[in-house]
């Protein structure tokens, strides 16, 4: 093992000092972040997922999502529109595994066999605001066969639906 003089050891000492300063600053922050999460976890211990979602995303938002989930069966698609601020992404995720179609696609292809048979439209009005559910008039376009979800819907009994316009 070679021995080093003070002059030779200055650059490495300075570098180790930089690493030490980083650790002295970052380590307490890391420990504090963990403590903060732990305190929050203790405060919400035992809370079911639905209540936790309401706490994080807002009661009105999650209530609207619940109503839409009850209205649209998992196999039935819906049109999704709204503000391009992420609220569309948020609503689409919360309505999974239901398939979404865009209104732009309908406008581009109004005679499409399947788009004409989609009964529901969800509007995401903006970040944090509850989505709206609209019911559309549906029919089987001429020359088209009934969509798979229409057959399922017809076979199902009537069910309560969410807020409509």
């Amino acid at each position: 093992m070679p021995r080093y003089g003070l002059i030779q050891r200055l650059p490495p000492l300075a570098t180790i000092a930089v690493v030490s300063i980083y650790l002295a600053v970052a380590l307490p922050i890391g420990l504090y972040n963990t403590a903060r999460r732990l305190r929050s976890a203790i405060a919400t211990a035992g809370m079911p997922p639905a209540a936790m979602r309401a706490r994080v995303f807002g009661q009105r938002y999650t209530a609207a999502i619940e109503l839409i989930r009850r209205a649209i069966p998992p196999d039935e698609p819906y049109f999704l529109s709204g503000k391009a601020d992420g609220s569309i992404i948020w609503a689409r995720y919360d309505l999974l595994p239901r398939r979404a179609a865009s209104l732009e696609a309908l406008a581009a292809n109004p005679r499409d066999c399947w788009f004409g048979q989609i009964r529901w439209s969800v509007v995401a009005p903006g970040a944090g605001r509850p989505p709206l559910l609209l019911e559309r008039p549906v029919s089987v376009p001429p020359g088209c066969s009934p969509a798979p979800w229409r057959r399922v819907v017809r076979a199902m009994p009537a069910r309560p639906v969410g807020p409509r316009r």
Partner: peptide
Amino acid sequence: ATAVVLAGPLISALTGPLA
């Protein structure tokens, strides 16, 4: 220290919904 720091994201992920 590494284990305690790592516990933070685990606790956070287990408590809050995906956001």
